[in-house]
């Protein structure tokens, strides 16, 4: 297992979660993946964990349009929790929507690295690992 990089995926679409999980395992099996099908589950988990639970860099792939808590809210919560840590959270907001008219919203959160259009691909994971691994 890599000490440096781990990935967390939050998406209410189970198929997309499965695609992400399997594609990542084809690219690099040493990277730990944590996945959540519900934003509430993910937020509960986030509150429970302490700094030691995370690798130096954690990439969060957060679906924007989720029921109960949407991606923007989840990103804010991640930011708040990591503000107290010495470790790094790298957030990408993910969506199948063609155009994100909420670009300004993306920029409001400094930990949000960018926007990823679905579907996630092998080359995306390779790029993320190269950049943050």
């Amino acid at each position: 297992m890599s000490d440096k990089l781990s990935i967390v995926i939050v998406d209410d679409n189970e198929i997309d979660l499965m695609i992400g999980e399997r594609l990542l395992s084809r690219v690099d099996q040493s990277i730990a993946l944590t996945k959540f099908n519900h934003s509430t589950e993910m937020l509960n988990w986030l509150q429970r964990e302490d700094e030691n639970s995370f690798t130096t860099n954690t990439i969060f792939l957060v679906d924007i349009y989720m029921p109960i808590f949407n991606g923007y809210y989840v990103a804010e919560q991640i930011t708040q929790v990591f503000d107290a840590f010495d470790k790094k959270a790298i957030i990408y907001l993910v969506s199948a929507t063609i155009e994100i008219s909420d670009n300004r919203k993306l920029m409001l959160n400094s930990r949000v690295e960018g926007y990823i259009g679905k579907p996630v691909t092998v080359s995306l994971f390779k790029e993320l690992i190269k950049k943050h691994g």
Partner: peptide
């Protein structure tokens, strides 16, 4: 742009995965 495209992108994702 979202609800119609979302399952479509899942299909594409599965096809990508299958290709691997």
């Amino acid at each position: 742009s979202h609800d119609l495209r979302s399952p479509l992108m899942s299909i594409l994702g599965i096809a990508n995965l299958a290709e691997v």
